[in-house]
Amino acid sequence: MMERSYEKYFREGRLPHIWCPGCGNGLAMKAIVMAIEEKGLPQDETVIVSGIGCSSRASGYMDFDTLHTAHGRAIPFATGIKLANPRLHVIVITGDGDCTAIGGNHFIHGCRRNVDLTVIMFNNEIYGMTGGQGSPTTPLDRLTTTAPYGTSVRPFDACHIAMAAGATYVGRSTAYHVRHLAKLIGEGIDNKGFSFIEAYVQCPTAYGRKNRLGSGADMMKHMRDSAVMLSAWEKLPADKRQGKFPIGCFLKREVEDFNTSYEELVDRAGGVR
């Protein structure tokens, strides 16, 4: 067998990873290395920063300069790295709880500052590692260990938050659409500014089992059947949108990134770079 070219981006000795059988995090991680390979980012000049949670374990399996940081604080750490050494490509891996709950403020202010980061949020709609507590992205009427009679609060749409807060590239894809996800991540890497990509992944252990959604494969079939490309979604009448969700690039805009505006500020103040 020819060794697959993306394998060189993994820390061979750390595999197999600890994610449950059927978990989609491995697919999102594969999409990230596929995008990195396609864009030809050098391993020594790429930094992977992650927070805490199932998703954030990914940094330990990837052979780059990696940083596993405090809960919810991946974006501030990554901002520091990008400011200290703007030459580096900084990729942030975070989860739905890490990004929208514990690190919610860091997330919106990261978007507002428009730091040149690529943030990939693995959204499994649950706190998997700690035992299946409801997260801000758990849909309505789902069972979790903290909502035994079903969730009664509307979920966040992280892509809407990112768009409203000022991110310059926003997209969503799923673990089933690996190549599409890799393409979006690649576009995020190309974008000079804050890029936010939501990777919808399945959690068969903590979320699927409790809500009778079946195995990891069943949950991926659901993604295949209910994810609609944005161009088709826009033509769908409202009644046909029930139970479906759009994927694709939602927003792309040109705004000066934080490093550039900061350097201008340094020049204006007569400082030395």
């Binding site: 197999p16 449950c20 059988p21 059927g22 978990c23 068969p204 195995s215 990891g216 494969a217 069943d218 991926m220 079939k221």
Partner: peptide
């Protein structure tokens, strides 16, 4: 890990 995703697809 025998998750069966490859089998299903």
């Amino acid at each position: 890990k025998g998750c069966g995703i490859c089998v299903a697809f």
